[in-house]
Design a protein around this nucleic acid. Sequence first.
DNA 1: AATGAATGAGTGTTCATTCAT
DNA 2: CATGAATGAACACTCATTCAT
Lengths: 206, 206, 206, 206
Amino acid sequence: MALLTRTAAESPQRPSNGKHEAILRAAITVFARNGFFNSKVADIAREAGVADGTVYLYFKNKDDLLLSIINEALDEANERIRREMAELTDPLEKLYRIAELHLGLMGNDRDLAIVFEVEIRHSTKFMEEFSATRLSEYLRMVREIIEEGQRTGRFRTEINPQIATKVFFGAMDEMVTNWILSHKAYNLVDYARPVVDLLFRGFARE
Amino acid sequence: MALLTRTAAESPQRPSNGKHEAILRAAITVFARNGFFNSKVADIAREAGVADGTVYLYFKNKDDLLLSIINEALDEANERIRREMAELTDPLEKLYRIAELHLGLMGNDRDLAIVFEVEIRHSTKFMEEFSATRLSEYLRMVREIIEEGQRTGRFRTEINPQIATKVFFGAMDEMVTNWILSHKAYNLVDYARPVVDLLFRGFARE
Amino acid sequence: MALLTRTAAESPQRPSNGKHEAILRAAITVFARNGFFNSKVADIAREAGVADGTVYLYFKNKDDLLLSIINEALDEANERIRREMAELTDPLEKLYRIAELHLGLMGNDRDLAIVFEVEIRHSTKFMEEFSATRLSEYLRMVREIIEEGQRTGRFRTEINPQIATKVFFGAMDEMVTNWILSHKAYNLVDYARPVVDLLFRGFARE
Amino acid sequence: MALLTRTAAESPQRPSNGKHEAILRAAITVFARNGFFNSKVADIAREAGVADGTVYLYFKNKDDLLLSIINEALDEANERIRREMAELTDPLEKLYRIAELHLGLMGNDRDLAIVFEVEIRHSTKFMEEFSATRLSEYLRMVREIIEEGQRTGRFRTEINPQIATKVFFGAMDEMVTNWILSHKAYNLVDYARPVVDLLFRGFARE
DNA sequence: AATGAATGAGTGTTCATTCAT
DNA sequence: CATGAATGAACACTCATTCAT
């Protein structure tokens, strides 16, 4: 919730009715509850407390709702990561921090996490569009940290930064998916450091 | 393709019309092309060369098609992994082999891979059901290999096998997702060893 | 026609679009023409001059259309009978009047008559439900008149009021059915008095 | 049951497989249970213990099944009435006997009665076809008895035989309908004489 | 800006009927 | 004669989107 609320506060170019916000939050809730294809625009409107037609004053169509959720959330996440990275020097510390942000943001907003993990994958088109822009920025930041680590001698030079980036992201992603599906109420962010530790040290003894 | 064909060959309890097979293959193709929700049963029927109604002689409904794809593919994958693991002893070798099978099966059948990566996220309910059974068997096998590696001294005892399993699976899954989304025609299975190597040795220098 | 129009005028709780009315009239026309099962909702919509979906804004489903026709018509018929009975005293006169109302209402609206005679037999379950409420009220009024006639000495006490009621209703019903099936354009209400006379005096000479 | 079985015995022009019979009985059962439109040919086939396609070796289509039920039953009923009338002379006795046959046949075969009372009315086309032939023969016999009664001085000459016939039939029909809908297991044929008595003497005192 | 009544295109599924065996 | 697998036309109902108010 904080995620999107803050976004709006920071970019008050729209008449701050709160309607844009309200509809987006409602969409997250409804998409998470029923899935994108089983969610009706009317349900979202009711959840947001507006008329059906009002949704179309703020969003082009139903697809645009999903896209907006993704984009606004990722824009802010990327911005946050960028800010926080600027304050850190050790590449390992940076990975710890990114993991904490990734799992923290998701762990704080289960509905948003469901939309990201589940609903976004409903069509390759969505995924392609999505991974082509916002997500690739995230991945670029991770990759640069890894390359930086190799330059500074913290990480092995034998590892392929492209692959390492995918492995890092895949690990994060799987932690989130598992957390969503397991209905136990554990704290997702607690896994940030253990996972990064595992990636850092590897499975191998010695 | 081989995946499903073989399954049918091994369990010839149905009238070996080939219709069951043909419809399932058609469903994979069509689901991969349009996504589950945007696929019409009529499209699948046409692709399979049968009448609309015939689909319902072999499958309960549209959902059942997706379910059957997943279950048949995973059942065989698990069976294959089980067989191959029996012939290996070194846990690291086992992980290499699982990764090769995982990426090999997916890399050999892009449509099937798309269905797995994308359409499986049909709904949280669907995923829960699915991950509760077939997928958890796969994950159990991975976890047991890791625990075995810890007992034999190959893997560090400090790592949490649950987390390591998730990281392993997340890494595989992400490799597949990336391969699907990138339209470059590289060979997915080639990444099996590099990824496992990375997980085994870790990012850390020394 | 007057039948249903009046009903709407008396209960203006709905936005008096006329759409509710128009759809109901269209349904009567179409059901009468094709039968319930052979009538398409799309036909009714076209006949009413609205879009298919609009039907569902006013009625729950196709069944509800039939139910509404029956209920609205019978409610008003019962109300009309009740009013008119209050102004008469002689039981025989009352039977004359009921017969005139019964045959008059039907004879004025052939389509409605067809729906009643034919489509009401939608299913035994439908008929049971229907005859349990609206129709039984009609029958109760008839029976009470017969019992009243026995008390006042107008009718023989040997007759069983239950049976007499059924015979009365059966006679009316058959007059309507015959009128519908015979395509001669005779005036149905003209038969009200002859039929009641016949029931009153019997077949017997003397 | 006896009704149709006998018919077949009397007209053994078909290879007396019993299949024709079996399918017709199955159709009566299934139509009575589910209604004509909700009955599937496959259900009838299963009930009759034959394959779906076999139904079409004996009947032109689903409509033909309903028509055959009606026609065979009415043909036999008419034949029976004709025989029995030949042995009676008093017109009142004849009406008693017809009523007993009418209510007796229906009362002995609830499923057949349901098909007659409910399913036959599903479309005006069915009813028209039906009432144009077999039923009108039944009605003609009744009318002739009434006219005969008028000639012999048993019935009043003031009554219109056409109307009296309709009233008689309407009374019978309504007794059957009521018996079907009421789930009390009373004996329908017991009402034959009381109803005819009522029609004969009328409601009037004196 | 906001409403919500109206639209009508879109589709999973059923089932009467056929016909190769 | 008998089968039952295959066909494909048919249709009730939904819901994203529009637009007059």
